[in-house]
Amino acid sequence: MSAPTTTYAAKANDNHRITEPALVRWGLTVVALVFLAMFLVLPLAAVFSQAFEKGLDVYLTALKEPDTLSSIKLTLITAAVAVPLNLVFGVMAAWAIAKFTFPGKNLLITLIDLPFSVSPVISGLIFVLLFGRQGWLGPWLDAHDTKIVFAVPGIILATIFVTFPFIARELIPLMEAQGRDEEEAALVLGASGLQTFFRVTLPNIKWGIIYGVILCNARAMGEFGAVSVVSGHIRGSTNTVPLHVEILYNEYNYTAAFAVASLLAFLALITLVVKTVAEWKVRQQLGR
């Protein structure tokens, strides 16, 4: 069995020829690892160590506090409204952009990206300008006894705006790469538009959707800037989890602040795991 051995040796030699010396390879690896440790692992560890500094009992008490519970509830409600709505908008926008040509298509793509390019504070201010007491629609809303800004609807609106691009942005390249062939095949075979969408388009973008939803959800629950502007920081009423963390921190209530923050950190970890699985599945779907 000498022939295969020589082939492998030749291969190893070839590989060796295009790689850098050991010193450079190890040097770069160490730099990368140190960077990761300092900027990603250390902060995450700090959050958990601070949260559990005074033991599990204090941690749980901090979470059971009514204001905290109400902030968790509000965050969950916000995500529960924003994510499904953006799922529908995102899938529709991506479908239109990836599978059809129409005038104004590029404008639509630019508009979808708008929330990414605007500072979250501005995103929040837009809603204050629109629905605030001095805003365009303020007097009309007042007359109808409806409150949007400094209330739950404003928080949900700002969250929808900020998280709008996530699902569409994830789906557009995926759907463009898949092309229109399968949809056309379905139509020729007599499928209706809805049948085509649910039996052909949707299964092909399933993992892309899950990926987008996970990112969208993480941002919806974690959004600070835009929500901060429209919320009014009313404890137990218009405080979301990130806003509540800030308030606790500003009150020097570190353990409670980090306990609540650890919830968001947990969310981040779960998001990462699901995201990795979804990414892998998307690659598989494209590869087939």
């Binding site: 062939d181 399968e182 095949a185 020729v188 007599g190 039996r199 052909v200 092909n204 087939r288």
Partner: peptide, 19 residues
């Protein structure tokens, strides 16, 4: 509409439903 024409169409890159 393409649905009503009752044609069979074979695509260059097959366009089979992957899933």
């Amino acid at each position: 509409h393409v649905r009503e024409r009752k044609v069979g169409f074979v695509f260059q890159h097959y366009a089979l439903f992957k899933h």
